[in-house]
Design a protein around this nucleic acid. Structure first.
Length: 231
DNA sequence: TTAGAGCGAAACTTTACATCA
DNA sequence: CTTGATGTAAAGTTTCGCTCT
């Protein structure tokens, strides 16, 4: 199996905050079940109020929502909160309780929110990586299919040539060697002569073609696979 | 201007596993 | 060694805010 990119924590996932604005937002008309209080944008600091008051207020709203039907009020993180979370995620994609507490304090969020954000972020990283692996395998499959087509064409061409068994000329005697002295290198599958024939070997066109063919496989394998030992 | 579809992300649930008393 | 409590991560799902048409 090929070596695949494995740096999930380095994946650059942009966290977009659509429509983020400090200007007063108009409550969505499609969510009538929200109370008047909960229609307030919880990301928005109330005019004239301190940020701490805003946080307290938004938490109170959440507490209230637990009486009766519990419609979730979803927080939209500010750009700054997202940035800090991302930064922290890059350093460490899991948090111990102390880190979680500290980060929550720093971001003025509840520890549970930080925890959920990290869970979702890990999930997104994994999804992104899986998608990348999928793309990689698709491309690899495509190139192997193409390679296979080419090789089959070459096999057909060779068959059409109807050449006899390969003839090897010995460098010592300058006489043709019997085909039985030919061996195949098990690693690279190139044709080689037996041990007693150490010198450079002249081969006929057919053998050359066979060697070139096998080396082609090696070359393209090198292109598509990250590592391949040279013979 | 409004309604609704679609999408992204926050929040939740379930399950599995590890640790500890 | 077994057992129950507790905590956490992963995977899957639900819900909601927002944009676009």
């Amino acid at each position: 199996m090929a070596v695949l990119p494995t740096c999930s924590s380095n994946l650059e996932l942009t966290i977009s905050v659509p429509g983020f604005s400090f200007s007063p937002s108009i409550p969505s008309s499609g969510h009538e079940r929200c109370s008047t209080v909960r229609d307030l944008d919880i990301n928005q600091v109330p005019s004239g109020g301190a940020e701490d008051e805003w946080i307290t207020a938004s938490m109170e709203v959440e507490e209230e929502s637990w009486n009766g039907a519990p419609p979730r009020k979803k927080l939209r993180l500010t750009k700054e909160q997202s940035r800090l979370l991302e930064e922290s995620f890059r350093q460490n994609n899991t948090l111990n309780p102390k880190q979680k507490e500290a980060l929550a304090l720093q971001l003025k969020l509840r520890p549970r929110q930080v925890e959920v954000w990290f869970q979702n972020r890990r999930a997104r990283s994994k999804l992104k990586q899986t998608e990348m692996e999928c793309e990689y395998l698709k491309r690899w499959f495509g190139s192997l299919t193409e390679q296979n087509r080419r090789l089959q064409r070459e096999v057909e061409e060779l068959r059409a040539m109807k050449v006899g068994p390969p003839t090897v000329i010995s460098p010592h005697s300058c006489e043709p060697l019997p085909a039985s002295t030919l061996t195949m290198c098990p690693r690279c599958e190139r044709v080689a002569t037996t041990a007693h024939d150490k010198g450079p070997t002249k081969v006929t066109a057919a053998t050359t073609t066979a060697t070139a063919l096998s080396s082609k496989v090696g070359t393209s394998a090198l292109q598509s696979r990250p590592s391949s030992a040279a013979c």
